[in-house]
Nucleic acid binder design. Structure first.
Lengths: 201, 201, 201, 201
DNA sequence: AACTAACCGAGACGGTACGTCTCGTCTTCGC
DNA sequence: GCGAAGACGAGACGTACCGTCTCGGTTAGTT
């Protein structure tokens, strides 16, 4: 029994344990610099300085800038996407979009997200993680709103869900990146209005 | 005679005239590298090498990388966007999108355009030029299709045109950048299908 | 006496005693690396790795690289400076110098000793140890040779001993460090020849 | 003929010429830091910062710290070894040694020279330069003093000059490095006294 | 037998400096 | 003016060690 237990036990931790404080500091610093200067403007040196950490401590745990950004992104993505529940699909979508617009235009996270999107164009690993951990989460929120709407019979059941989600988030990204028109409440309202037409057929 | 000619010229054009060959070579090289390595991966050094030109010749005529990219972009954007005319709005939109998808996914221009979009995030001047010379042209094409459709009474007249255009091009950019689904003919067809619902109310 | 001293001190000797095995391993490792890579190429890190010892175990017992090297050299050579006794001062000095030349030029100790010299320039504590443990021992050997010579009436009694010793060891160091001429037997012979002139007046 | 001519013609200087201003700034900065922090405390990084120069500009022209220090010292001191001429060999040697003692003990050059010695042990090229530019110059001074003394018949002609010079400079280095006794005027006087015995037989 | 103190190995920590690289700029040459 | 060449200031790269700190574990007394 003892032997069994022992075989289960992990190897005893040797040496000084990794500093959780440093890890946090590095990931936060990475996110901050990403927001300020974008992916290409992010240097390990700057992260080390900002996080008050030795460069080696970064290189010890992440072997590339992309790796670091992926982890920072994960930390960022871990933020709870709260799915509004106003009782109607229209209300839920409006709320969801307004929150998203606010985060993207009025918080540092917005810039960081743009930086991340830029980063995805340079590294497919980042692209994958960005899609799985960030984009999918937000698409999932819409899917849940739709399901609730179907159950309540507010919208029709035979939706091409993925396409509709592209029609919701696509214009958002388009405006955010091209900047030809603002991401404001009017846009949220009119966009949702059009989407509702499609949801009710 | 030579003297006479010179006296005619207002600006006394001294020294060797600017090499048009070099100018073309530089702009083409810039576009090529933009396509290969993106905006941040573009260095004047690399352009000079590729264009077989001295670095100083670039700096003499363009103040910055952004300046250079803007000019290269103008050259690129000068490409005629031909507006399809199949007789129906549905057909026109399908054609327009399929062409756009092809260019973006199967030609070097696609990468260059993504590179440019990335560049816009770092420089508002580039952003402006990109919008005016590139985006607007393509939005204009859709507007023309809509106008013809209204004249033919294929679609209703009281459209929120700009919003509908966002609903067309937004999903395209979204898929191009995020890569969660392909930019293929099926997508073009289903996207246009949904848009047509909105155009007919 | 030793016993008395010990009983007086009555060191409480609590906790785990110092590991003699580690001590040996460290000193041997130091000597080995010294031989391979010289004084400048010696790092505490490398010693710890080679000796399979934690770095702290080194820092706990030695304050600096120079400290460590001094101990390693002492251990390695057992460093008994055997004072030759050939019957004549001339013979004794020749023997002494030839031995010294051999050690300095044909063993790793030569390089190590030079490295130590540099270290002494920055740390007076090390300088003191180096003088007491290395230099004085060798100067004492010459003093003993002189005393025997005086007793045998081979040399005069009123010597400025310290100055003469400088005249013996000085040229040795000079050639060792500057390398403008070899530390060979010819040098030993001619040097002793000149010194004998001064010893006999 | 053409070939011959070509071989005579200097290569046309291509590219930007070396900046004399930077060269001066680097050497002055090196000298300043040498004085402040000594040889071991001198880092290329610090020199670059102080001289307001890119690190590469230092590495382009000097292979190592020792190289740089050699040039800085040469420049700084212009290093005229003035050979005293008091009329007697005794007086000349006394003067020469007292000057040397002063420079070595009371100026930053002393520390620098010691630092250079280490470097010579790791790099024979530096060793060579050190010998030729520093040591030989000073040995030459003694040779000249001896020649004048021989002409004036103050000393015998059949000297083993190199050995005697070792007997003069050796003790100086020995005391400088080991520090067992001071480099003072008393030492200069008694050392010269002994040397004179050998010079007169 | 339990407790305590000092050791041990391992290895992470914040740092400094290394020598290399590439950037955009500057400065010269010869055509 | 142009191409080419190459030095320049700047600053990030990834590595090597520094000397310190912090773990789990050992090895002796002392209680």
């Amino acid at each position: 029994m003892t032997l069994l237990t022992k075989s289960h036990v992990k190897l005893p931790q040797r040496g000084r344990p990794r500093s959780e404080e440093s890890r946090q500091s590095i990931l936060l610093g990475t996110a901050a610099i990403l927001a300020e200067r974008g992916y290409e403007g992010l240097s390990i040196e700057a992260v080390a300085t900002k996080a008050e950490v030795g460069k080696q401590t970064i290189y010890r745990w992440w072997h590339s800038k992309a790796d670091l950004v992926i982890d920072a992104l994960s930390e960022l993505a871990a933020q709870q996407v709260d799915i509004p529940d106003t009782g109607s699909v229209t209300g839920d979508l409006r709320e969801l979009l307004k929150n998203a617009f606010f985060v993207l235009t009025a918080t540092p996270s917005g810039n960081a997200v743009i930086g991340l999107l830029v980063a995805t164009q340079r590294d497919t690993r980042i692209s994958k993680v960005f899609r799985e951990r960030f984009v999918e989460k937000r698409r999932g929120a819409v899917r849940e709103i739709f399901q609730r709407g179907i159950q309540r019979e507010q919208i029709r059941a035979n939706l091409d869900t993925d396409l509709i989600i592209d029609l919701i988030y696509g214009p958002m990204w388009y405006r955010l990146l091209v900047g030809h028109a603002p991401l404001d409440e009017v846009f949220a309202d009119t966009l949702v209005e059009q989407i509702m037409v499609l949801l009710k057929e």
